[in-house]
Simulated scan of single mutants.
Amino acid sequence: MGKLCSALALCLAAAAAPAAAGPAEEAERLYARFVAVQNAHDLERLRGLLLDSPRFLWVSNGLSLWGPDAMIARLSGFQANEVWCIDPDQRRASAVEVAPGAAFLHVPLVLTVGSAADPQRYHVLVSALCAETPDGWRIAALFTTDENRGEAAR
């Protein structure tokens, strides 16, 4: 009976275990951690979510920044504001697998930044290329731009 119970317990545990996530799901999980550490103003942990390479690229409204240190330096200035909060719109987010170890994630969000007395709200589009590395999933490239809130052209 003991062996049968053990086998049954193993089968139930296997059935309850989450299925392995694909690249799109991994990108979504990675970006959720990215938002959480930014909202926590934890730039050290944020750096660990970025591809550790001079080829890491952040394009922000036409400004190209190469390497994770450049991104952290720029973000440290932004996060010096009294208010810095990212609120992604998960309903409009979309992840697309581009290869077995890579996915492209597109997320509209609202960035609230500035003084506590007069914070500004910006509607931003973020697109992130997420890649599996030997150290886990990392953001390899990030593209941010102001969202055009007008009617989308098709």
Results as ranks from 00 to 15, higher is better:
Met1Cys: 06
Gly2Met: 10
Gly2Tyr: 08
Lys3Trp: 13
Leu4His: 08
Leu8Pro: 13
Ala9Pro: 07
Cys11Gln: 12
Leu12Trp: 09
Ala14Arg: 08
Ala14Asn: 09
Ala15Thr: 13
Pro18Tyr: 03
Ala19Lys: 12
Ala21Lys: 01
Ala21Phe: 02
Pro23Tyr: 00
Glu25Leu: 02
Glu25Met: 01
Glu26Ala: 06
Glu26Ile: 04
Ala27Gly: 07
Glu28Tyr: 04
Arg29Val: 02
Arg29Met: 06
Leu30Pro: 03
Tyr31Val: 09
Tyr31Met: 08
Tyr31Ser: 05
Tyr31Ile: 09
Arg33Trp: 02
Ala36Val: 06
Ala40Asp: 14
Ala40Lys: 08
Ala40Phe: 07
His41Trp: 10
His41Lys: 15
Asp42Ala: 03
Glu44Thr: 08
Leu46Ser: 04
Arg47Val: 05
Arg47Gly: 14
Arg47Pro: 11
Gly48Trp: 06
Leu49Asn: 09
Leu51Ala: 12
Ser53Leu: 03
Ser53Ile: 04
Phe56Arg: 12
Leu57His: 11
Trp58Lys: 07
Gly62Gln: 07
Leu63Gln: 08
Met71Gln: 15
Ile72Cys: 03
Ala73Met: 06
Ala73Gly: 06
Arg74Asp: 12
Leu75Tyr: 12
Gly77Trp: 01
Asn81Cys: 09
Val83Tyr: 03
Trp84Tyr: 15
Asp89Gln: 05
Asp89Asn: 10
Gln90Asn: 05
Gln90Tyr: 15
Gln90Cys: 06
Gln90Gly: 01
Arg92Gln: 14
Ser94Leu: 15
Ala95Cys: 04
Val98Gly: 14
Pro100Lys: 02
Gly101Glu: 12
Phe104Leu: 15
Leu105Phe: 01
Leu105Lys: 01
His106Gln: 07
Pro108Gly: 10
Pro108Gln: 03
Val110Met: 11
Leu111Trp: 11
Gly114Glu: 07
Ser115Thr: 14
Ala117His: 05
Ala117Lys: 10
Asp118Tyr: 01
Pro119Gly: 01
Pro119Met: 00
Gln120Ser: 12
Val126Gly: 10
Ala128Asp: 10
Ala128Ile: 05
Ala128Leu: 04
Cys130Pro: 14
Thr133His: 00
Pro134Met: 00
Asp135Val: 07
Trp137Glu: 02
Arg138Asp: 10
Arg138Cys: 09
Ala140Met: 09
Leu142Met: 15
Phe143Ala: 14
Phe143Ile: 15
Thr145Trp: 04
Thr145Ser: 13
Asp146Tyr: 11
Asp146Ser: 10
Asn148Arg: 00
Asn148Val: 00
Asn148Gly: 03
Arg149Pro: 04
Ala153Glu: 00
